[in-house]
Design a protein around this nucleic acid. Structure first.
Lengths: 218, 218
DNA sequence: ATTACTAGTAGACGAGTAA
DNA sequence: TTTACTCGTCTACTAGTAA
């Protein structure tokens, strides 16, 4: 799609042509597009040719409306921008609550981890983690998270058992501050573990299978 | 801003040039912009000239990063799209034109009301209101409007008669800016009164019984 | 491989103007 | 007033090619 077409389409949308016919002379369009009346008229004919707008050519003033195809074109650009600017500072993962493996909760609740988490994130986690199965289509976004810095929580050895480094990424679930924790040497997994100051299941009344959004700052 | 500049800028952003330098040859950029290597090279020079990108011209591959000015340009477009597509905060009432009761037109045209309306809505209403009988099935939507904030137009007492508070909700009929006005202490009614800068009946060629859509921002 | 110059050309634009 | 044609100009593109 030629950028000058979507540019014109966007301006028509801003003038109200998205949902309804809008009275719009070629001179007016030319003014908003910063071009002559003649060129705007030509642009309108091109948009008509490409089936991006329809037009009701009245006696005095034409009325223009964007077609469903035109709306789709605009949405494509809109979603491009969304991707650009929402990926810039946060990633939103969609998924479903699942039962904890037991493992993660025990793991992260070691005092040596807890102290560091409190220092890094500003809260002392509730004992236990909330586990979320990330939607398949959001796995690339999870990889972005894995690739980002986060806060490193150093590992240690205790009672002959080795606890590895963990990366904590600050996040929010329904505006509740939390963090997702990922072992530094993690294998590929579609389950993420979330720690929080509060008991998330109780606070947000979550049950297994419930769907949630996890917003992660990166 | 020329649309072809923001187009190129957007593609560079999608390739990762928003936050960091991204290795991007003129041929690659040409491919994503659907133009020749030569034109892409020229486009890069133009963007540099306009201070929209900076560039680290290494021995083998140049690396490109969008400047703060370039980010601003992109954000302007992003917010334009947001405005276009998130105008979904509206209620559309369907109904039919009816004869004014006379009452409303006299009521709202009091200068004390008019001044406030002009200040709140940005237009001085034409004297008289357009009355619309709202479809029965849209009455729940009308209740949503009544429940929303709107602009309060304060009442007053004049010539021993009391004029109560009125709530004005900005609206559009076929893309013409207007507002529906509802007395704060209104009884249940399926007729709404609409004020507008223009004579709506004449401007939109409306007769009693004609059906219209009223889009109300909430 | 790159980047980017020059030269030639297609097409985009605006002025004039008709309907 | 509109919309939109023709036509001349000038810009924007690509091909060829140098560095």
């Amino acid at each position: 799609m030629d950028s000058k077409f979507t540019f014109a389409l966007r301006k028509i949308a801003m003038l109200g042509g998205l949902e309804d016919y809008v009275a719009l002379s070629s001179r007016e369009l030319g003014d908003t597009l910063d071009m002559s009346q003649q060129s705007a008229s030509k642009r309108i004919l091109e948009l008509l040719d490409d089936n991006l707008i329809t037009r009701d050519l009245g006696a005095r003033r034409q009325r223009i409306k964007i077609t469903p195809k035109g709306v789709e074109e605009l949405k494509v650009e809109y979603y491009e921008y969304k991707k650009i600017f929402e990926l810039a500072d946060q990633v939103v993962l969609h998924g479903a609550i699942t039962e904890g493996m037991g493992e993660g909760g025990y793991y992260i609740c070691q005092p040596r981890y807890m102290e560091q988490i409190e220092a890094a994130l500003g809260f002392r986690p509730f004992e236990g983690t909330l586990n979320v199965i990330v939607d398949k289509e959001d796995m690339p976004k999870l990889e972005i998270v894995r690739g980002s810095t986060g806060h490193r929580i150093s590992g240690f050895i205790q009672d002959g058992r080795s606890f590895g480094n963990v990366i904590a990424h600050p996040a929010k679930i329904h505006n509740v501050e939390c963090a997702i924790v990922i072992p530094e040497r993690s294998h590929y997994s579609n389950v993420i573990e979330i720690i929080c100051q509060y008991h998330l299941r109780r606070t947000l009344k979550l049950d297994n299978g419930d769907r949630i959004d996890v917003k992660i700052k990166i």
